[in-house]
Design a protein around this nucleic acid. Sequence first.
DNA 1: CGCGGGGTTGAACATTCTCAAGAACTGTGG
DNA 2: CCACAGTTCTTGAGAATGTTCAACCCCGCG
Lengths: 236, 236
Amino acid sequence: MKEMTACPHHPGGAGSHQGCVSLVPIFNHLEPDQMSEIMQVVQGVSFKKGEVMYHAGDASDSLYIVNEGQIKIYRLSESGKEQLVRILNPGDFTGELALFKQSVHEAYAEAMVNSSICMIKQADLQKLLLKYPTISLKILSEFSNRLETSERQTTRFATEKVETRIALFLAELIDSEGNGGKTVNLPMSKKDLASYLGTTPETLSRRLADFEAEGFIKQKGQRKITILDVDGLLLV
Amino acid sequence: MKEMTACPHHPGGAGSHQGCVSLVPIFNHLEPDQMSEIMQVVQGVSFKKGEVMYHAGDASDSLYIVNEGQIKIYRLSESGKEQLVRILNPGDFTGELALFKQSVHEAYAEAMVNSSICMIKQADLQKLLLKYPTISLKILSEFSNRLETSERQTTRFATEKVETRIALFLAELIDSEGNGGKTVNLPMSKKDLASYLGTTPETLSRRLADFEAEGFIKQKGQRKITILDVDGLLLV
DNA sequence: CGCGGGGTTGAACATTCTCAAGAACTGTGG
DNA sequence: CCACAGTTCTTGAGAATGTTCAACCCCGCG
């Protein structure tokens, strides 16, 4: 199932696959010689579409950095319902959570398409952290961001109705796409988006239809949405 | 309003108020001489009941460690509704979030009773982190826990109904109180608990009444609840 | 060009919120 | 120790919001 070699996606050999890691925010400030030290403890792995990188309940002992592909992270609630937590694109990483406390994963990581991953074992990473304290600061910064995002998300679930959560999601999509244009591409299927936003595909579909009827947006195909009136959207 | 001296709650002078810090998980592994180095950059502050330690929008430049009292952290959603995020007790800290990226607070911190706090400025803390990498590891570990909690909470809001969230909260209260007894004290008013659980006081009251009618719990006074049947509670 | 999964729509139902009124608790001052 | 005041909490009824289940559509892909 799972292919595991020195670096399958960079057959050139050690030192040639910095691409896996050098674009990761927590490492990209390092000197070349420090970087090559990191490369020595990195392992390449591939996952085919649909394979799971880790299960809830698995012991967690590695940091996973996405090199190519897409990985979706989702959780199962106590009652068995699934919620999509985030989607990892190249350069993103996961596994940090339980890295600093021996513990098990609470989430699932599954390849949405064929993907190649770089892994660093917990023990190796800890050594690096002690040797290069600036890496810790970077990770702390990354954690801060994620924690902030997560708590904001929690508050939204706790206080906003679905309609508002959808509107906020669309508004943030515009920001993240950066361009002046107002046509955005949904980063995932509407089914997954519903899961991410804590609702059902049916409700999402209805609310988007409402937005369209009110002239706030225009849908084209399954994933393209043109935002016609952000303000109208946001004071729903 | 806000009293700010070398250390108002430990008039003995510098070095005598280790109590503020030594019980904090991120520091309590240090040697005495390292500890005293930290003490030199710690400042004591007091807040009266109802005073706010920081507002959403304030620049964030300090770590706050609770010495005495209780601080409640809450957020305002985009639509202006309030959600209680957590309550800090002595030994807990806050301000970490934006500590590693110059930014502003997104939450509010308000003293629930008269409280005394120890502050460490961001710049001082960063120096300590570089000098003693093990502190970073401790903070990373603390962040991991909080992130895990936050994401679990998000998933619960996204997938569980209010009734289940209440049941889970009660079940976890038993665990955290540790004792074999099944009578727990709510750590906050039901009003605040409703906010924490993302519901209204009315609904919370009704669901608890339901639980009582079904024989799962028994309420005594405003904050004491005896759990009669955890299993029944959890498969609601 | 037909298949299959995502997507949409409809109708009934479940859950939760809101508003409003009344009850119970807490702690404060006499 | 008691009474009072101010909350906090509870309860009721109706309205809003969202879910479920079922049927259908349609887009993308073989």
